[in-house]
């Protein structure tokens, strides 16, 4: 096995151009589980550890190499909240946003946030960069739009970030859980609301009908919240797997969305 550890994006792209089958290694928290299990045996590894450009983070952009440990400090409530729920301190010190996008698991906890704020994802290759909406990047369970010689540069956030954001997830215990269902809700001053659902579909989903219904409510009452919850459950597309049943997920995601919305209303 060979490893290279470039210190720039250009260096990564050079290495990738000559080794299109290389494993791109960020925090390793998804990758090393596969390596340890013998499911992945890379011959050529490109480590992103020393690529400072990927660690850039400001109000409009989160570099692929930013760890959850750093994102826990975000002023955006949902981003800080979701980051605090990822794995454990050990996982958050290593795991990155880029790795969550790279793995593209339907249960990836950063993904509902990116979907709820309509983030765009920037990819780079030797041929230049392209930026696409989150739903063109996340195309299926563990499938994304990344081409072989490309890497993820990071996620761009909109100029007009919503006022209120909240994240909620449910798993089998408090700490160290993969989501059975997760949600991110945002609401702006005008009442416009977005709702993104994780782990209840082949990829992250937006509950568009629930959004439309509750965006029209200036000050949603109990009946409106009930209807919102019902619509979210209806719009989810869960499956039964080893973590939970479709039925439970459908119910839970509605409850979580309602609670997250309530936190955006106070």
């Amino acid at each position: 096995m060979e490893i290279v550890r470039p210190d720039s994006v250009a260096g990564v792209l050079d290495a990738l151009a000559s080794h299109p089958d290389a494993l791109v290694l960020a925090g390793g928290t998804d990758t090393m589980v596969l390596v340890n299990a013998g499911a992945l045996r890379p011959e050529y590894v490109i480590s992103l550890r020393h690529v400072e450009d990927l660690k850039a983070w400001n109000a409009r952009f989160i570099g692929a190499g930013v760890t959850y440990a750093r994102l826990e400090e975000s002023e955006i409530a949902a981003l800080a909240e979701l980051s605090r729920t990822v794995g454990s301190p050990q996982i958050r010190a290593a795991g990155t946003l880029g790795g969550n996008l790279g793995t593209a698991s339907p249960a990836g906890d950063a993904l509902p946030f990116l979907a709820a704020v309509d983030a765009t994802i920037e990819l780079v290759s030797k041929h230049g960069s392209r930026t696409m909406p989150w739903d063109e990047f996340l195309i299926g369970p563990k499938q994304n739009a990344l081409e072989p010689a490309e890497i993820i540069l990071g996620a761009h956030l909109p100029d007009d970030m919503p006022w209120r954001t909240a994240f909620a997830k449910i798993g089998v215990r408090q700490a160290m859980v993969i989501s059975i269902a997760s949600v991110c809700v945002t609401r702006n001053e005008a009442g416009e609301t977005t709702v993104a659902l994780g782990a209840v579909g082949p990829t992250v989903l937006r509950a568009r009908r629930a959004e439309m219904m509750v965006s029209a409510e200036k000050d949603p009452d109990e009946a409106a919240l009930d209807e919102f919850q019902r619509l979210v459950s209806e719009e989810s597309r869960p499956i039964t797997d080893h973590r939970s049943t479709a039925e439970y997920r459908r119910m839970a995601v509605g409850v979580l969305a309602r609670r997250a919305l309530e936190r955006c209303l106070v």
């Binding site: 096995m1 490893i3 550890r5 290694l25 925090g27 390793g28 928290t29 990758t31 090393m32 589980v33 390596v35 340890n36 299990a37 590894v45 480590s47 550890r49 440990a69 794995g87 454990s88 301190p89 050990q90 996982i91 010190a93 290593a94 160290m176």
Partner: peptide, 29 residues
Amino acid sequence: CEQGECGSCSILLNGDLVCSCLVMAADAD
């Protein structure tokens, strides 16, 4: 576990608390 779940392999890497089972040795150069 070698899956990052148990923490029994915890170490400090440049001062950060991480699971050594999830660090590729070659990347710790």
